[in-house]
Amino acid sequence: MEVTLSILLGFMIIGAIFALHAKDLLSAVIAAGIVGYSLVICFLLLKAPDLAIVQVVVETITLIIMVAVVLDSTREELKVKIDTQQIFNISLAFIFMLALIFFFVQATDMLNPFGQHSLRMASAYVGETAAKTGSANLVTGVLFDFRGYDTLGEATILFTAAIGVLTILRIKGKK
């Protein structure tokens, strides 16, 4: 299990690195699709079928949007010369990475080893969902009943984003 997931994650890392260094924007977008669809397989292996279904749909829509944008504009990657600004950015990135690695090492002490998670908060959900909500799917029960306001907020965000996209893409803009 852990080996399979490691191989998939390594595949995702390779895809991500290729996406960042591709010369063609279209291949960069497709390489980002590698990462997203590998995530689907990871979710299936981790026994999360709901997440896998949602991720398939969302990743497909994202890819369509990105491909449409790239085809509508330009496919060529910028020619970046190594100048002082770029060196500064790269060193800044490495400083951030070092800081995050420090915090990661601190935080992993508190994590259980992989596969030995203990249900604390969710044990109540697991025991009571079927009786209280009538839902056979525990994730649905949590999402739409115990944490219904979360889902309401999520729907609000989607609606706001749709209005935002429509506003930005208006044909006529104010002069």
Partner: peptide, 16 residues
């Protein structure tokens, strides 16, 4: 099921 419910919300917000 709790992290899965949270991630489900986060995926949709990521799309937005």
């Amino acid at each position: 099921p709790l992290p899965q419910a949270m991630v489900l919300t986060a995926i949709v917000i990521g799309l937005a």
